[in-house]
Nucleic acid binder design. Structure first.
Lengths: 229, 229
DNA sequence: TCACAGAATTAGGATACACTAATTCTGGGA
DNA sequence: TCCCAGAATTAGTGTATCCTAATTCTGTGA
């Protein structure tokens, strides 16, 4: 009862830092102080201070001027927050009438307040989903997560049927725009024609042809449509 | 845009103080520093300090050594917290499998994190209930609340059919004990016999006769059973 | 190789809230 | 009326987190 955390209670700030660092280190590479500061809208000086404190608590590994990366324990906490966030989003959309463009902020606050019990009750009510309304994978309670390799629609070849699996965006306006066009996870699309130089892309979406910008297409992460069943 | 709050965001501590003071001033009489300290498990010195700060924010009226009472604004905030707490408890019991003895702590944390939108969505999902699983009245969104005059079962006359309306207790063990005996809001009971000197009370509960202590009976708030329909 | 721009850290302060210890006030008996 | 026990407040600290300003480090281009 010494090195081990009393249980699992961290301040809201600590949870936010760990989650941000998790998001900023895709391959476990260290996250920089300024990236963390930008992600959390704090000054770099504040981030330096917090990194030092979190290192002392063995939630981060940190060599001065070399960025910070999560320890095993830090990663565990971060993944728990990600699970909470995505499970809460899923629940609010499925049972309380939220739309995917309005659910983020609510989840952002609730994730710090829910108990593990509540998260598991929501999971059960949803049938233990493995992805959230944006298609982002939900880590399992043990921290494991299945990450499918996906490519942005902007890079996909013409003529091949693709399934939108994830929509990687938080901006409500953008999400609403996509929803209005039926561009959401699970939908099958085929690129009809792509203009060169990152120009607009014509896509067939469920019998309709739409033209979208390359910028938008970058947010749509797809897999090749297969028999699957 | 000066005396008026930016919007409606207070710290968790502030919300807890206001809620506690609300509960401690049934008739708007000032709550004492030591009562607040006891309710929140804080030192009286800390409470003195916070009372001063809340007075400056015009959430409390306070004359030194004379206790604190809510201002109109303070009362509004307190009632909003009470609504949240009771609505959350109702929702968790109705939709997420919580029992009335385990729901309090979860609600205590969530009430600081939910948005008004979420509270109203839960209210709608529940059909706008006016009381929570313990029978406590839920203030309306505008702060109005119907409080029925009730008397404890321990004081009720023999032979008169009574409806349990509220169970005023938080202790999980006590609540479980009552639930096991079918003593919950909405149930009709009749006192068969009362022992003198605060002795045990025999009651008929839905065709069964039970004997409970006067202490327990004090937590059961009842109204006379009437036609009602 | 070395200076310098930009990144990171340290220094020094502020705020919110908690605590213990010391002090002050209030109201009720003698 | 006056004293004193208990309640309340003030004084002085500590922790967590943020900030701005000053300083230090790192890596890159000449």
């Amino acid at each position: 009862m010494n090195a081990v955390q009393a249980s699992d209670s961290f301040t809201r700030s600590v949870e936010d830092y760990l989650k941000a660092i998790y998001r900023l280190s895709p391959e476990g590479r260290p996250a920089t102080t300024s990236d963390i500061a930008q992600a959390l809208d704090l000054s770099p000086a504040s981030v330096s201070g917090m990194i030092k404190r979190l290192s002392e608590q063995r939630l981060l590994d940190h060599a001065p001027y070399r960025g910070a990366q999560l320890t095993e324990e830090g990663r565990r906490v971060a993944l728990r927050m990600v699970r909470r966030h995505r499970m809460i989003e899923s629940y609010l959309v499925a049972h309380l009438g939220y739309s995917w463009d309005t659910v983020h902020d609510e989840a952002e606050r609730l994730e710090h307040a829910v108990s593990d019990t509540l998260v598991e009750r929501m999971a059960a009510a949803l049938g233990h989903p493995t992805s959230d309304p944006h298609g982002d994978p939900i880590p399992a309670a043990d921290g494991s997560m299945i990450e499918e390799a996906l490519s942005p629609l902007s890079d996909a070849p013409e003529g091949v049927p693709l399934v939108i699996r994830r929509v990687s965006a938080e901006d409500p306006g953008l999400l609403r725009h996509l929803a209005e066009r039926g561009l959401r996870p699970g939908v099958t699309v085929t690129i009809a024609e792509r203009q060169p130089f990152s120009g607009p892309i014509s896509i067939a979406v469920e019998d309709e042809v739409q033209v979208i910008g390359a910028e938008l297409a970058r947010h749509l992460l797809c897999a090749e449509a297969e028999g699957m069943a």
